[in-house]
Protein backbone atom coordinates (compact mmCIF):
# COMPACT_ATOMS: atom_id res chain seq x y z
CA UNK A 1 0.00 0.00 0.00
CA UNK A 2 1.59 3.21 1.15
CA UNK A 3 5.32 3.18 1.06
CA UNK A 4 6.47 4.48 4.44
CA UNK A 5 9.58 5.97 2.91
CA UNK A 6 8.01 8.53 0.62
CA UNK A 7 6.60 10.75 3.31
CA UNK A 8 8.04 13.52 5.41
CA UNK A 9 9.63 12.42 8.67
CA UNK A 10 10.59 14.78 11.47
CA UNK A 11 12.77 13.37 14.20
CA UNK A 12 13.56 14.83 17.64
CA UNK A 13 13.32 18.43 16.50
CA UNK A 14 14.23 21.16 18.96
CA UNK A 15 13.77 24.84 18.26
CA UNK A 16 14.75 27.92 20.21
CA UNK A 17 13.92 31.54 19.70
CA UNK A 18 16.60 33.64 21.29
CA UNK A 19 17.47 31.58 24.33
CA UNK A 20 13.88 30.41 24.87
CA UNK A 21 12.97 26.90 23.92
CA UNK A 22 9.86 26.71 21.75
CA UNK A 23 9.56 22.97 21.44
CA UNK A 24 11.72 20.04 22.29
CA UNK A 25 12.02 16.55 20.85
CA UNK A 26 9.23 16.90 18.32
CA UNK A 27 8.52 13.81 16.22
CA UNK A 28 5.98 13.23 13.52
CA UNK A 29 5.44 11.71 10.14
CA UNK A 30 3.38 12.81 7.20
CA UNK A 31 2.46 10.33 4.50
CA UNK A 32 1.15 10.90 0.99
CA UNK A 33 -2.54 11.62 1.10
CA UNK A 34 -2.41 13.25 4.51
CA UNK A 35 -2.90 16.73 5.86
CA UNK A 36 -1.15 17.89 8.99
CA UNK A 37 -2.82 20.76 10.75
CA UNK A 38 -0.41 22.36 13.21
CA UNK A 39 -2.08 24.02 16.15
CA UNK A 40 -0.76 26.09 18.96
CA UNK A 41 -1.07 29.47 20.65
CA UNK A 42 0.52 32.61 19.34
CA UNK A 43 4.23 32.34 19.93
CA UNK A 44 4.19 28.56 20.20
CA UNK A 45 6.44 28.31 17.17
CA UNK A 46 4.10 27.29 14.37
CA UNK A 47 5.75 29.55 11.84
CA UNK A 48 9.21 28.58 13.08
CA UNK A 49 8.35 24.93 12.66
CA UNK A 50 7.12 25.43 9.11
CA UNK A 51 10.19 27.45 8.20
CA UNK A 52 12.43 24.77 9.63
CA UNK A 53 10.67 22.09 7.65
CA UNK A 54 10.88 24.18 4.50
CA UNK A 55 14.62 24.46 5.08
CA UNK A 56 14.55 28.22 5.59
CA UNK A 57 15.57 28.04 9.24
CA UNK A 58 17.92 25.84 11.20
CA UNK A 59 16.68 23.81 14.15
CA UNK A 60 18.85 23.57 17.27
CA UNK A 61 18.86 19.83 16.75
CA UNK A 62 16.88 17.19 14.97
CA UNK A 63 16.45 15.75 11.53
CA UNK A 64 14.01 16.18 8.70
CA UNK A 65 13.89 13.68 5.92
CA UNK A 66 11.76 13.46 2.82
CA UNK A 67 11.28 10.15 1.04
CA UNK A 68 14.00 8.77 3.26
CA UNK A 69 16.58 11.39 2.32
CA UNK A 70 17.97 14.10 4.59
CA UNK A 71 16.47 17.37 3.40
CA UNK A 72 19.59 19.38 4.16
CA UNK A 73 21.90 17.14 2.19
CA UNK A 74 19.58 16.83 -0.79
CA UNK A 75 18.39 20.41 -0.77
CA UNK A 76 17.90 20.79 -4.49
CA UNK A 77 15.92 17.55 -4.86
CA UNK A 78 13.83 18.43 -1.82
CA UNK A 79 13.12 21.93 -3.06
CA UNK A 80 11.88 20.42 -6.29
CA UNK A 81 9.12 18.71 -4.28
CA UNK A 82 8.23 21.70 -2.15
CA UNK A 83 5.82 24.62 -2.41
CA UNK A 84 5.78 27.18 0.38
CA UNK A 85 3.56 30.13 1.22
CA UNK A 86 4.61 32.13 4.24
CA UNK A 87 3.60 35.40 5.83
CA UNK A 88 5.40 37.21 3.07
CA UNK A 89 3.68 36.33 -0.15
CA UNK A 90 6.57 36.55 -2.54
CA UNK A 91 4.60 38.87 -4.79
CA UNK A 92 6.35 41.79 -6.48
CA UNK A 93 4.04 44.79 -6.35
CA UNK A 94 5.51 46.32 -9.50
CA UNK A 95 4.81 43.21 -11.52
CA UNK A 96 1.47 41.92 -12.77
CA UNK A 97 0.08 38.58 -11.54
CA UNK A 98 1.14 36.97 -14.81
CA UNK A 99 4.69 38.28 -14.53
CA UNK A 100 4.84 37.26 -10.90
CA UNK A 101 3.77 33.71 -11.57
CA UNK A 102 6.06 33.56 -14.56
CA UNK A 103 9.14 34.51 -12.54
CA UNK A 104 8.06 32.09 -9.82
CA UNK A 105 7.83 29.30 -12.39
CA UNK A 106 11.24 30.13 -13.80
CA UNK A 107 12.77 29.36 -10.40
CA UNK A 108 11.62 25.78 -10.64
CA UNK A 109 8.93 23.94 -12.53
CA UNK A 110 8.15 25.33 -15.93
CA UNK A 111 4.70 26.42 -17.01
CA UNK A 112 3.20 27.89 -20.15
CA UNK A 113 1.45 31.27 -20.34
CA UNK A 114 -1.73 29.31 -21.04
CA UNK A 115 -1.37 27.53 -17.67
CA UNK A 116 -0.92 30.86 -15.93
CA UNK A 117 -4.03 32.43 -17.46
CA UNK A 118 -6.01 29.30 -16.66
CA UNK A 119 -5.05 29.21 -13.02
CA UNK A 120 -5.60 32.94 -12.60
CA UNK A 121 -9.12 32.72 -13.91
CA UNK A 122 -9.78 29.76 -11.64
CA UNK A 123 -8.70 31.65 -8.53
CA UNK A 124 -10.99 34.48 -9.51
CA UNK A 125 -8.49 36.91 -10.96
CA UNK A 126 -9.92 36.94 -14.45
CA UNK A 127 -9.43 40.43 -15.83
CA UNK A 128 -6.71 41.30 -13.34
CA UNK A 129 -3.94 39.37 -15.07
CA UNK A 130 -2.05 42.35 -16.45
CA UNK A 131 -2.61 44.83 -13.65
CA UNK A 132 0.25 45.71 -11.33
CA UNK A 133 -0.13 43.86 -8.07
CA UNK A 134 -0.04 47.06 -6.03
CA UNK A 135 -3.52 47.74 -7.39
CA UNK A 136 -4.85 44.44 -6.05
CA UNK A 137 -6.46 43.97 -2.65
CA UNK A 138 -4.82 41.92 0.09
CA UNK A 139 -7.12 39.00 -0.64
CA UNK A 140 -6.36 39.16 -4.35
CA UNK A 141 -2.63 39.15 -3.70
CA UNK A 142 -3.12 36.14 -1.50
CA UNK A 143 -4.91 34.48 -4.39
CA UNK A 144 -1.95 35.11 -6.65
CA UNK A 145 0.36 33.48 -4.11
CA UNK A 146 -1.91 30.47 -3.76
CA UNK A 147 -2.25 30.22 -7.53
CA UNK A 148 1.51 29.72 -7.63
CA UNK A 149 1.20 26.79 -5.25
CA UNK A 150 -1.62 25.27 -7.26
CA UNK A 151 0.35 25.62 -10.45
CA UNK A 152 3.49 24.13 -8.98
CA UNK A 153 3.79 20.45 -9.62
CA UNK A 154 5.10 19.60 -6.15
CA UNK A 155 4.34 16.89 -3.63
CA UNK A 156 4.56 18.80 -0.38
CA UNK A 157 2.70 22.02 0.27
CA UNK A 158 3.70 24.04 3.30
CA UNK A 159 1.12 26.73 3.97
CA UNK A 160 1.47 29.18 6.81
CA UNK A 161 -1.90 30.78 7.50
CA UNK A 162 -2.91 30.48 3.85
CA UNK A 163 -6.45 31.77 4.35
CA UNK A 164 -5.59 35.14 5.84
CA UNK A 165 -7.62 37.93 4.18
CA UNK A 166 -9.43 35.53 1.87
CA UNK A 167 -13.21 35.72 1.63
CA UNK A 168 -15.49 32.76 2.30
CA UNK A 169 -15.63 31.67 -1.32
CA UNK A 170 -11.90 31.90 -1.64
CA UNK A 171 -11.36 29.73 1.41
CA UNK A 172 -13.83 27.20 0.11
CA UNK A 173 -12.13 27.06 -3.27
CA UNK A 174 -8.66 26.57 -1.81
CA UNK A 175 -9.86 23.92 0.61
CA UNK A 176 -11.21 22.09 -2.40
CA UNK A 177 -7.85 22.39 -4.14
CA UNK A 178 -6.09 21.12 -1.05
CA UNK A 179 -8.41 18.13 -1.00
CA UNK A 180 -7.73 17.50 -4.67
CA UNK A 181 -3.99 17.68 -4.06
CA UNK A 182 -4.16 15.25 -1.20
CA UNK A 183 -6.35 12.84 -3.14
CA UNK A 184 -3.69 12.74 -5.81
CA UNK A 185 -1.15 11.61 -3.24
CA UNK A 186 0.11 15.02 -2.17
CA UNK A 187 0.90 16.15 1.34
CA UNK A 188 -0.12 19.37 3.03
CA UNK A 189 1.29 20.95 6.13
CA UNK A 190 -0.61 23.96 7.31
CA UNK A 191 -1.36 26.30 10.13
CA UNK A 192 -4.65 28.13 10.24
CA UNK A 193 -7.13 29.38 12.78
CA UNK A 194 -9.84 28.18 10.43
CA UNK A 195 -11.44 24.80 10.98
CA UNK A 196 -10.39 22.51 8.17
CA UNK A 197 -13.37 20.32 7.38
CA UNK A 198 -12.71 18.03 4.48
CA UNK A 199 -14.49 14.79 3.87
CA UNK A 200 -12.52 11.75 2.74
CA UNK A 201 -9.22 13.24 3.89
CA UNK A 202 -6.90 12.08 6.58
CA UNK A 203 -6.27 15.11 8.73
CA UNK A 204 -3.73 14.79 11.49
CA UNK A 205 -3.31 17.36 14.21
CA UNK A 206 -0.18 18.46 15.92
CA UNK A 207 -0.55 20.53 19.06
CA UNK A 208 2.54 22.54 19.90
CA UNK A 209 3.17 23.10 23.60
CA UNK A 210 2.00 26.46 24.88
CA UNK A 211 4.45 29.33 24.75
CA UNK A 212 4.08 29.91 28.48
CA UNK A 213 7.31 31.32 29.89
CA UNK A 214 6.93 29.53 33.22
CA UNK A 215 6.45 26.11 31.77
Amino acid sequence: MINKEVGLAVKSLTCERGYRELFNDLNFELLPGEILHIKGENGAGKTSLLRIIAGLALPVSGQISFAGYDCRKYRSEYNEQLAFVGHKLGIKLELSPVENIQSYCELGNSCTPQDIFNVLSKVGLYGFEEMYCNQLSAGQKRRVALAQVILSDTKLWILDEPFTSLDVEGIEYFLKRIQQHVEQGGMVLLTTHQEVNLSNCTIKYLQLPSGDMNA
Partner: peptide
Amino acid sequence: LESAIEDPR
Protein backbone atom coordinates in the same frame (compact mmCIF):
# COMPACT_ATOMS: atom_id res chain seq x y z
CA LEU B 1 27.04 42.97 13.33
CA GLU B 2 26.99 40.63 16.28
CA SER B 3 25.10 43.07 18.45
CA ALA B 4 22.70 44.04 15.66
CA ILE B 5 21.34 40.55 15.01
CA GLU B 6 18.95 39.57 17.75
CA ASP B 7 18.96 35.80 17.44
CA PRO B 8 22.26 34.67 18.97
CA ARG B 9 22.69 31.67 16.73
